[in-house]
Write a protein that binds this DNA or RNA. Sequence first.
DNA 1: GCCGAATTTGACAACGTTGTCTAGAGGCTA
DNA 2: TAGCCTCTAGACAACGTTGTCAAATTCGGC
Lengths: 356, 356
Amino acid sequence: MTDPARGTTQRNGTTSPRYGNRPTMKDVAARAGVGLKTVSRVVNSEPGVTPDTERRVQEAITALGFRRNDSARILRKGRTASVGLVLEDLADPFYGPLSRAVEEVARDHGALLINGSSAEDPAREQELVLALCARRVDGLVVIPAGDDHRYLEPEISAGVATVFVDRPAGRINCDAVLSDSFGGARDAVAHLIAHGHRRIGFIGDQPRIHTAIERLRGYRAAMSVAGLPVNEAWMSLGATDPSRVLAAAEAMLSGPEPVTALFAGNNRVTVTAVRVLAARPGRAALVGFDDFELADLLSPGVTVVAQDAAQLGRTAANMLFRRLEGADEEPRQVVLPTRLIARGSGEIPPAHRVTS
Amino acid sequence: MTDPARGTTQRNGTTSPRYGNRPTMKDVAARAGVGLKTVSRVVNSEPGVTPDTERRVQEAITALGFRRNDSARILRKGRTASVGLVLEDLADPFYGPLSRAVEEVARDHGALLINGSSAEDPAREQELVLALCARRVDGLVVIPAGDDHRYLEPEISAGVATVFVDRPAGRINCDAVLSDSFGGARDAVAHLIAHGHRRIGFIGDQPRIHTAIERLRGYRAAMSVAGLPVNEAWMSLGATDPSRVLAAAEAMLSGPEPVTALFAGNNRVTVTAVRVLAARPGRAALVGFDDFELADLLSPGVTVVAQDAAQLGRTAANMLFRRLEGADEEPRQVVLPTRLIARGSGEIPPAHRVTS
DNA sequence: GCCGAATTTGACAACGTTGTCTAGAGGCTA
DNA sequence: TAGCCTCTAGACAACGTTGTCAAATTCGGC
């Protein structure tokens, strides 16, 4: 009924697998009437094989449908030619370009990318990272969810090159590539202040997350520089799911001292904020962290602090491969600048708000 | 200067790598004063080890910082517990959720995901797929760029489970999960016709791509059912970069027989079309294939034919693992329905256009 | 037609793990 | 105490590849 070649019968009676009975170099060698090592030489285009022998081997390879088993090769050579990427959520539009950029650099170095989403859960991050280490990836790019990475110490000192992105490593000294969250946030809030706002709300990510804290610092710094007081009710850090953000925004916009402008701490917050503001009479101003597609086509266009996700990924991957090629410097932190893109939503003056 | 443990000195004088001198089970066994197999048993929580022995082994593992080398394990067991995902571009918002869904299902089955972008290049697709096969991934999820997949035949009959997504395999019989492109396109165009449009333009992807052809077929079917003639100048298939789409849209909107509505063949085309229409006086109607974030907040809201990318990925991954668990059925094609979401841009009547 | 050098070729071990199989140690029954 | 059975433990081979090294072959120059 089924093809006998696909069965699991073994030559030697053991329960070893043979990967669904795929042909090996040994099989190719037998068929071509040459030695095992000669097949290896042909497969790897090593010199020292006569054209005639090479032809016979090639024929046997084609006839049997042989493909080299890279698992065995990896075991023997000790390099996996693969890098691991652990991020928060592949479905988030911020991480798509970042991921793609890492992949491109890896490809340039002949490496494949193994991918995993931590779902912002530190335990899952650790589980993923260690699974990748067990596979002996050559290097790791990590967008951390947790804030304690001491579990990585033995791996790093065993030679797994590691670069953190978007957020620094916790409690270990390690390469990192970050965006200038503090500066970007300060610019965003200064922009709102320049347009006349005095009561400004900040809705950010969970305080466990480094970028959330940095952006909060930037917010406070801008307010402080302008000599403006800050009300605790104007700051809200927490999960960025729509319901939480919606509640936070509503509270700020309708409290006893309602804010006249919002600063949104990341792209998901911004999107929800846009919805909240669109549903309300009398527009409040808005600046968001992270650019997003079509931000310019909304009315008003959404003013944002843009960071270059692809550049973040590219920089990190390049640092990784420099280490893999033997660079033995001290761990570095690279901070990439952000850019304020004014599109209108940040320029709405406070006078426009309705008094309830 | 550097830590001697990280050097490449070998015990036996060969050039073998030892993964940066990481400890192996042999080292653990020596330190714990037990046999190799006993360490293996402890690491894999196999029964038949006394608590005392187990403790000694665990201590040695901790002391040496041992972590099992999965490359060797994979070689021995013949299962890699990893699946490959080849898609067009990880940075495209359509593929993010799809990718994430595949990852989640893989995770439920204890497998990791190896990811690659083909950049819509058939040669690169093949290169990636074969690289994944060489690593002996257990299964493959492929969003094909090419239209001839005979190169996969030896791999599939060697036991690599394979499922195509979004577009069917070319010239081989293989599992596939698709969206109902034909039906969705027909509904979209019927929607425009129902709102009074008679001259409707279609801008789609390259004709090499299956979904582009299907959506064109749906467009033609809807026009035909309504008894409407179709002008060749109203159909444009090609690359979906903004410049090409912009040119095509401008041509259709300003020719001798200008269209009064556009049907955009995928999310990238839709975004560009929104820009073109926003920049023009006298709004033409628009329906797009694929939903996108904030489509409802544009004015007018963009009417779309939505497909569920995550569901596409989930379904494909489930089919894959069913095969891996031994299901030995004929290859199947699953077609998932699409859903028309009316938001306003499709309901603009043709009377609104300006006559030039 | 013979020597030495250069070239081609293959036997063998090793990479780090797991499956099989057998040797002991210990406990139980008669 | 002998005989049997159970349980723990380790020796060994194998997974499919590549590095080393030595054997076999070819070739040029005389």
